[in-house]
Amino acid sequence: MSDETTPLSPPEEDEALAAELALGLLDGAEAEAAVRRLQDDPRFAAAVRAWQERLAHLAEGLVPVMAPARARQNIRERLGHAVPPLSTDPGARTAWWRGPVGAILGLAAVAAVALLLVLPGLRDGAPDPAVPGYQAQLVAADADLAVSATARGREMEVALERGPAPAGRDWEIWWIEPEGGAVISIGLVPREGVLRLTLPEGLELEDGVQIALSDEPEGGSPTGVATGPVVAVAPLTRL
């Protein structure tokens, strides 16, 4: 590249600075000056926003990874949402935490969650029979591990029937799209009870999807990609 030693022109300097600010590459006085400039220089601010839009496409390509249900519960508690609101909109669909379960959420969150797991159908009412259901039965080769997965619409449930992961390990659940498509972590097999989840954007229930379990460190793969051996795999088949 012949231009490697030519100094950047002032407009190029501004553009590079906007990119660096959007990327978080500046520090110290340089960062402070750039942040101040955002307030006074609309063109510079627009350039920074354009870089944020441009670069966000990189993140849109990341494989979604479901967070454990306790993350949502913690957010609710930290925002003070884990108590029933004083008034509800009668036209709105009853959110599950506003129902009978909401009344006991003042108790320990763990107790509330445990109760939810044994009260089926609270979340969305009866399943719609028009939407096809799917299921997968995951059994390890030595049959010491059995996990069932059922899904309908965007809702999925995963239950351990036998064979919890050893101490310090977790079984991680993977969604494998048909024909060599994406492999997406959808959570960890619960040690007891049922894991309920909503399928993330981009995942569609269809023939050919497989569910797999891999052996991972406690809390799941640290990278979002399976690191341990796959202990069971099964296709999702129509109920």
């Binding site: 990341l62 949502r72 993330p200």
Partner: peptide, 13 residues
């Protein structure tokens, strides 16, 4: 529901 798996992936990355 609509966005947490994607944002979790960003945090994890």
């Amino acid at each position: 529901d609509a966005t947490s798996a994607k944002l979790h992936a960003v945090c994890l990355s």
